[in-house]
Write a protein that binds this DNA or RNA. Structure first.
Lengths: 156, 156
DNA sequence: GCCTGATTGCAACAAGGTTGCGAAAAATGC
DNA sequence: GCATTTTTCGCAACCTTGTTGCAATCAGGC
């Protein structure tokens, strides 16, 4: 619980300062949460990891996440559970890269940059912008355990 | 308006009969709409293309779409506008194939089967199930027109 | 410390989707 | 054709995720 306060907060502040925009409590805190996270977080997850003492409003978190994305400090991912997930663009590879989504718990992870761009041809008149590659599967937590019977499930 | 009634309805009925499940008005109608569509449809689009005379309930459409997907008669696609889209699994290639989504109007299209499966490696303990490839871009309707000025926009 | 515009909090709203439950409609048997 | 059984439907109410309008507050510059 201290990791977010100490380390990530400093990095967050530094990154924000670099944008030249206003440094506000919510922005620092949200970015710090993203930086401290090991994977992409939903709005709800960000909210619950935010120190309750700050009392940051739900709507503000939405706006800050949106803003961080515009600033290039965060990275917004669409899973197929109709929920946006965000991670700090720091350790998230800048260039195009693949995503992994667990089909059980919904967790999302950024994977390594993709090498080949398998050419797909579009109908006439269509214009291609970018290609998204998502791997569906089970994350380590959701892969059924062998040998030992029943344990965790859905560690959302 | 007749295409849905005549042609697609028959095919729909035949497909449904093959499942051995109950043949109901809503199921036939919804599947017929999907069959008659040239692209993936959202729940709302299905609803508005359904003959109003049938008076099929909103919830029923949700349930039928879900059911058709389970039966393998329809195919469910997640766009990044948090909306499910469906198309009949008939002319939708069964095997793995790419999708196109227009970043302007949100329209979704099934593309031809992908040839190469660009190998991505997952973290230890993760299990891969399938790979989804989505091309983002502009559909023919949303590509900015050259020469001629202003015309259509967002033909939702 | 004061000013000013950018941010925030609040409350209300919107879209997409889900749930519980009684009523209606299929298939089945006669 | 009619009764029986079981699935499906319609309705109303609800949930989640995300947005919007607006007044109150705060960060940064002076």
């Amino acid at each position: 619980m201290t990791a977010v306060k100490t380390d990530a907060s400093d990095i967050a502040e530094a990154s924000l300062r670099r944008t030249g925009a206003r440094m506000t409590r919510p922005r620092i805190a949200v970015l710090a949460v993203l930086l401290a996270a090991e994977r992409a977080l939903t709005h709800t997850e960000v909210e619950s990891r935010l120190p309750a003492s700050l009392g940051v409003n739900r709507v503000t978190i939405y706006r800050v996440l949106e803003w961080l994305t515009e600033q290039g400090l965060a990275h917004k991912i669409a899973g197929d559970d109709r929920v946006w997930r965000f991670n700090a663009a720091e350790h998230a590879h800048r260039g195009p890269h693949a995503h992994f989504q667990c089909s059980d718990c919904g967790q999302v992870l950024c994977l390594d940059p993709v090498t080949s761009g398998p050419a797909v041809k579009l109908p006439a008149g269509y214009r291609q912008q970018r290609v998204e590659l998502t791997v569906k599967g089970l994350c380590a937590d959701c892969v059924p355990v062998r040998r030992k019977a029943g344990s965790h499930r859905h560690p959302h």
